[in-house]
Amino acid sequence: METKEIIYCLKKIVKPYVQNDMAFQDFGKDTDFIKDLEINSANLVDIVLDVEDEFNIAIDNDSMDNMLTVEDAVKIIKNKQQEA
């Protein structure tokens, strides 16, 4: 999957949990889920689960540990898809 395509899917996944709509307008690879979008921490669990469902991958704890920005998520998704 292309990076652009992954980012497009991520944007759809993240949307319902966003608390800062202004920051969401600039959604891109540098967007930070907590610092920019102000997503509450329990919903970060939902995002991890939604990403697993959408991309049909399993995100292990070590990978999840580092899933703070869109770019982090893209990297994890690409890695897991290659492994599969």
Binding site: N40, A42, L49
Partner: peptide, 18 residues
Amino acid sequence: LAARESNWRRIGFLEKVF
């Protein structure tokens, strides 16, 4: 708000956190 925002009963949620 937690009851509205989060469904901890969804599959996988508890395993990721606890």
